[in-house]
């Protein structure tokens, strides 16, 4: 523990800005994965333990697209769309068979795919750490905010994730598709009886969740190295965020992810050995005070 360092950091705006910005990108990446986890759980009733593997897939798709085209835009599109399409196929062929099944069957199917995808990545891209490096478009001098340095890519990543959050909230809250999705989450059969192909809706929701994870993997590529098994940590963090925020709540995932990002960022200054402990302690406190999570509905 080094609380003096933490207090020093809080007394210098430069340090605060730096830590907030790195906390934000940690949180935003977690959010993009967790929003898919919470969406898929909330609508399909499936705990997708393979969601971290989808994040990994997005990173590798993005890396490959970047090497081929030299364009980060294409890389993000490849990560999001490639992973989204993979998600649709995965849902149709495998996940759709465990709807309504016990969590153990869902876990088995997903865990099998975590192993398969980790090995597939090893076979295709090798087991080494791969790095994209900072794309040229972002190789700019850092932004100065209140005396602290913020890399332009950090600002881009945060803006991208916030835009995704807003778009997702608008899709679910305002469009007819979103209304159908929320109705299907409550009563799938009745939605089908009204003439709506709920299998298609489910596949699209899973694909959307996968695309968000894939986009997160692509956005992580410039700041983290890609490696088989890279999806594990973010999966755990996404689950924590989902529990803190409330299962099924996108807003909850957003707030929870920022909280975890901040604990991680300021933790590296003040309690580098205890960030995970603090994260879990926070989850425990939230569950004690609000068992359904910050934005969860009781009785679900």
């Amino acid at each position: 523990m080094n609380f003096d360092a933490l207090i020093d950091c809080f007394s210098a705006s430069a340090c605060v800005v730096t830590q907030i910005s790195s906390g934000l990108i940690i949180g935003m990446l977690i959010f993009m994965v967790a929003s898919g986890v919470t969406l898929i759980f909330g609508v399909l009733g499936v705990v997708n333990f393979a969601h971290g593997a989808l994040y990994m897939l997005g990173a590798y798709f993005a890396l490959t697209a970047y090497w081929v085209t030299d364009s980060f835009t294409v890389a993000v599109l490849a990560g999001a769309i490639g992973t989204g399409l993979f998600g649709v196929v995965f849902e149709r062929l495998f996940i759709s068979r465990v709807y309504g099944a016990d969590v153990l069957s869902q876990l088995l199917v997903c865990y099998a795919f975590v192993l398969i995808l980790d090995d597939a990545v090893k076979a295709i891209w090798g087991g080494d750490f791969l790095s994209m490096g900072m794309p040229e478009a972002f190789a700019l001098p850092p932004l100065m905010i209140a005396g602290g340095f913020v890399p332009p890519f950090y600002a881009f990543l945060t803006a991208f994730a916030v835009a995704s959050a807003i778009a997702l909230a608008a899709l679910l809250g305002l469009t007819r598709f979103g209304k159908i999705v929320r109705a299907a989450a409550v009563n799938r059969q009745m939605v089908g009886v009204l003439g709506i192909n709920t299998s298609l809706v489910y596949a699209l929701i899973f694909g959307l969740g996968a695309a968000l994870a894939g986009a997160a993997g692509a956005l992580a590529a410039p700041v983290r190295s890609a490696t088989p098994g890279m999806g594990f940590d973010i999966l755990i963090e996404s689950f924590i965020v989902t529990v803190i925020g409330g299962m099924g709540s996108i807003a909850g995932a957003f707030v929870g992810a920022i909280l975890i990002g901040m604990i991680r960022a300021f933790g590296t200054v003040g309690f580098p050995l205890a960030t995970e402990g603090v994260t879990f302690a926070m989850m425990a406190v939230v569950l004690l005070v609000k068992p359904a999570g910050l934005f969860g509905k009781a009785g679900r």
Binding site: K179, R182, A183, V186, N187, Q189, M190, G192, V193, L194, G195, I196, N197, T198, S199
Partner: peptide, 24 residues
């Protein structure tokens, strides 16, 4: 046929337990 395809063939079904979407 799946229920949604039957509905698209012009059959509307009003179940006895009503099943409105309560939070909509």
């Amino acid at each position: 046929f799946a229920p949604y395809r039957i509905a698209r063939r012009g059959i509307g079904y009003v179940p006895e337990d009503r099943q409105v979407f309560p939070e909509h």
